[in-house]
Design a protein around this nucleic acid. Structure first.
Length: 501
RNA sequence: GGCGCUAUCGUCUAAUGGUUAGGACAACAGCUUUUCAAGCUGUGAAUCGGAGUUCGAUUCUCCGUAGCGCUACCA
């Protein structure tokens, strides 16, 4: 039998990092089982719709490499389309199916109309809380006679209102959830609430919609967050009432804030698009997120998405929540940045330079790649490139004090820079563009004048970069020479000398 | 309040009825060094508590404790 699994987001905003993890795991599971991965959109809450969410979701998931075989996708012309035999894949277009199912449940006395007002429900809950009793619906409408129901139905109709429909939880017994990750969990029917399954606006709630759709779409495995575990027995009961075979369930442990609460917007970035925007590579994000709750049980940490597909196994998913640790993400990111070729890195860096107001069209790709190479082992995220490399695009501004090495003084710095100026003037462009060769020449110069390295190299580096911290002077000079030529280097040395005068 | 889940270094985690409880990130120190980074080497750091089972429990069971999740006409 073909495995069919699905990712079923609500279009209510940005793509949460937790959603990414769920989508990634269902994708990895589907692929690893040679199964089908379905994207279904759960838009049953009309009030929470956010325009453009689906498009964004599709874009983000595509960007990071989570693919779908059925449901919505982005066509080559950038428009959204639907594919698959089980559509529509948008719940608001499937209302007839939920209505039909709800009717069937009512006819079988597995569900009932509820005419209680929200005021009464609020009041009821308040009372229950005051009495420290479990707060659930008191099932007032569950035992209405046929006549009473008919009467109330008419009254509602006259007022242009609709009653909700509640599922009738069996009064006794228990349901066992057999979870692929958490194992068997028992729930007593007594503590389960008679959940609303059709709202007064005619839309289903999640509980009904998820069961109907998973059944109709022939989903075999539901992979979702742990927060759904407590409502799973209700879903199982609906399957049973309908005489349907339930799907298998795999609940994923929660992703946590540093304070161990469920990962939320309040405590920093949780939008996948923001991580991408801030210069995290998709490979790093995917690798990191895959390791939140899963690991291969070996020492290997770096996994490409294909490798993840190969190794993924639900049995290796653990049960406890995992704190989202920025440090580790940064480490993954720097690992993947280091793997890039200089040219490819430069390409990825271009938008970040652009944002910093640097007109990169004025500079050659060779130059940009050389700069990228210099920063490659220093970058934790691409966005850091701005402040680190401005000096490659315009003369740095800095205080004269910066030019003075800790073991030296201004007068000495000036002398050393004057000496350097002569050395650079005599250099061929060719020698200048090669950091190794340049290093040999400068070291020879240092030996010749009988100096220590620091008092020469520190002022040089400072003059070129205007920064306290930067890559070494040889690499910087060689790179500068590639993009801006020897003259620029001499200019900067002269500017430094001027500051010390 | 009710129900449920979870519990190994600060964090992600590995392991086993018998180990010096392993790795990675982070931290710290050293090496290297003109600064920073990278790299290399090293250090500190954990089985929530209490019973029980057992020759032996971090591992199995129970009870606590703590944390978290759910408890909507939201998903």
């Amino acid at each position: 039998m073909t495995i069919r699994t699905r990712f079923a987001p609500s279009p209510t905003g940005f793509v949460h990092i937790g959603s990414l993890r769920t989508a990634l795991f269902s994708f990895l599971f589907a692929r690893s089982q040679k199964g089908v991965h379905v994207l279904r959109v759960e838009d049953t809450d009309q009030s929470r719709q956010v325009e453009g969410t689906l498009e964004n979701l599709l874009k983000v998931l595509k960007e990071v490499g989570v693919e779908f075989d059925e449901g919505f996708y982005i066509k080559d012309d950038d428009t959204i389309a639907e594919r698959g035999e089980y559509g529509p894949y948008l719940q608001s277009k499937r209302l007839d199916k939920y209505q039909k199912t709800a009717k069937k449940l009512i006819e079988g006395q597995k569900a009932y109309y509820c005419f209680c007002s929200t005021e009464r429900l609020d009041e009821l809950k308040k009372e229950q809380i005051a009495l420290k009793k479990p707060y659930t619906y008191d099932r007032l409408c569950r035992n209405l006679s046929a006549d009473e129901i008919k009467l109330k139905l008419e009254k509602f109709k006259a007022e242009n209102k609709n009653p909700v429909i509640r599922f009738a939880i069996p009064l006794e017994g228990q349901t066992i959830v057999r979870d692929l990750i958490y194992g068997d969990i028992k729930y007593d029917h007594q503590v389960l609430d008679d959940q609303v399954i059709i709202k007064s606006d005619g839309f289903p709630t999640y509980h009904l919609a998820v069961v109907v759709d998973d059944h109709l779409m022939e989903i075999t495995h539901v992979i979702r967050g742990e927060e759904w575990l407590p409502s799973t027995p209700k879903h199982l009961l609906i399957y049973e009432a309908l005489g349907w075979e339930p799907t298998k369930f795999a609940h994923l442990p929660l992703i946590l804030n540093p304070d161990k609460s469920k990962l939320s917007k309040r405590q920093g970035d949780v939008a996948v698009e923001d991580f991408l925007k801030h210069g995290y590579l998709k490979e790093a994000l995917v690798n990191f997120v895959a390791f939140l709750g899963w690991n291969p049980k070996t020492d290997q940490e770096l996994f490409g998405i294909d490798e993840l597909v190969e190794q993924f196994n639900l049995a290796k998913v653990n049960k406890s929540g995992a704190v989202f640790d920025d440090n580790k993400l940064d480490w993954f990111n720097s690992q993947y940045i280091k793997k890039l070729e200089a040219g490819a890195l430069a390409e990825k860096l271009k938008p970040f330079w652009g944002e910093a107001g640097i007109d990169i069209s004025k500079f050659t790709d060779i130059y940009l790649a050389a700069i990228a190479k210099l920063e490659q082992e220093r970058l934790k995220k691409l966005s850091e490139i701005r402040e680190r490399t401005v000096y490659f695009f315009k003369q740095p501004e800095y205080d004269a004090k910066l030019l003075i090495w800790k073991k030296s003084d201004a007068k000495d710095a000036k002398t050393k820079l004057e000496g350097l100026q002569k050395v650079f003037e005599d250099l061929t462009e060719q020698a200048l563009k090669n950091a190794n060769e340049l290093q040999l020449i400068l070291e020879a110069h240092i030996t010749e004048i009988g100096s220590d390295k620091g008092s020469v190299l520190w002022p040089l580096r400072a003059a070129l970069t205007g920064l306290e911290k930067s890559p070494g002077p040889f690499e910087v000079a060689a790179t500068l020479a590639i993009g801006l030529g020897k003259k620029e280097i001499i200019n900067r040395i002269q500017a430094a000398i001027g500051k010390l005068a």
